[in-house]
């Protein structure tokens, strides 16, 4: 990693307290960083805290009953210490996000043009007409056919894939330095999925935007990411450049994921279940979170391992990493 990271998350922890007093530590000890023009993939099973992590970066978690600690450094500023007001100035401008649910993420009562224009005039000192021109341009850039006509459409007239394109157009309208894409293709069917990923890749080339791509599809990671952070039960358990991760996974959980890598003839297969269940996050185990499912377990695993370097550019949260030595 030559260039200084644009986003660097350090030891992020998020705890929700429910109205019944139950506390869920959804995210705990999450660290990763991403540099300008690069794509970081965050992978992990459903419920491991991927969305919570990305929403904390955006400052979009519910205010009531949520405790966040750690540091989220974006362009050198710690977002957890910024005022709501300056966060609002960042959101949609230098920092943008697209979501898992294209069907419901657009407001059904306003035209897509209106919704993109709104994002532009919020952050740029330009009139509505100019903003409308820019919005049509953006629709064209995300390859929406007949953009000038679609501008006046309500979201219900568009398919899921088209809506996700609109979301991307909206997110990129102010040329953000960082785009967080939370499972942007999960809700879409395969061919559309490939198109959207291709689009994001092309847009990254054009704009140099850094991307955090959240997914539970290792195939997607292999295709578009430069680096990967693997999450398990609220923690980052392994970080590595993408080729190295696939060549030598260093955490037993990652090894398990590789074993269940989706086959090319069935690209939509989710991460197949590794034996055993994810721990209950309202009562996480004291030691390694993966211990209950780990074939490499040793007595030491009853204390929690740190995310520690296991190579020049990579780290793993496992007492037994690097694992190659074991195989040897």
């Amino acid at each position: 990693m030559s260039e200084a990271p644009i986003l660097s998350v350090e030891d992020l922890a998020v705890t929700f307290s429910g109205p019944d007093g139950r506390r869920t530590r959804a995210v705990d000890g999450v660290s990763f960083s991403v540099s300008p023009g690069r794509t970081l993939g965050i992978v992990g099973e459903s419920g491991c805290g991927k969305s919570v992590t990305s929403l904390s970066v955006m400052g979009l978690l519910p205010k009531v009953g949520t405790a966040i600690s750690g540091r989220i450094l974006f362009e050198g500023r710690d977002l957890l210490r910024e005022s709501e007001r300056s966060l609002r100035d960042l959101r949609g401008d230098r920092l943008a996000m697209i979501f898992q649910e294209p069907m419901t993420s657009l407001n059904p009562s306003y035209t897509i043009g209106d919704q993109i224009v709104e994002a532009i005039v919020r952050h740029r000192a330009i009139g509505r007409r100019e903003a409308a021109q820019r919005a049509v341009e953006m629709l064209e850039r995300v390859r929406i056919p007949e953009p000038a006509a679609r501008f006046h459409d309500y979201p219900h007239k568009l398919s899921g894939g088209m809506r996700q394109r609109v979301m991307i157009a909206m997110a990129l309208a102010c040329e953000p330095r960082l785009l967080i894409a939370d499972e942007p293709t999960t809700a879409l069917d395969v061919t559309i999925q490939a198109q959207i990923l291709e689009l994001m890749r092309a847009l990254r080339e054009e704009t140099g935007t850094a991307i955090v791509l959240i997914t539970h599809d290792l195939g997607v990671v292999a295709e578009v990411c430069d680096e990967v952070a693997v999450m398990y039960a609220g923690q980052v358990v392994e970080r590595a450049p993408v080729e190295e991760l696939f060549r030598f996974p260093q955490h037993p959980y990652t090894v398990g994921l590789m074993g269940s890598l989706p086959r090319f003839d069935r690209p939509r297969t989710r991460l197949a279940a590794i034996e055993g269940a994810v721990p209950d996050m309202s009562r996480p185990p004291e030691g390694c979170r993966f211990a209950a499912r780990c074939p490499f377990r040793i007595p030491r695993c009853e204390t929690m391992p740190e995310l520690a370097p296991v190579g020049p550019d990579r780290s793993a949260r496992c007492w037994r990493a690097p694992l190659e030595e074991l195989a040897a």
Binding site: D89, R91, R122
Partner: peptide, 14 residues
């Protein structure tokens, strides 16, 4: 609680 309100917030609207 809807997704489109989350989108609106993600745009930086007040």
């Amino acid at each position: 609680a809807s997704d489109y309100v989350r989108t609106a917030r993600a745009k930086g609207l007040s």
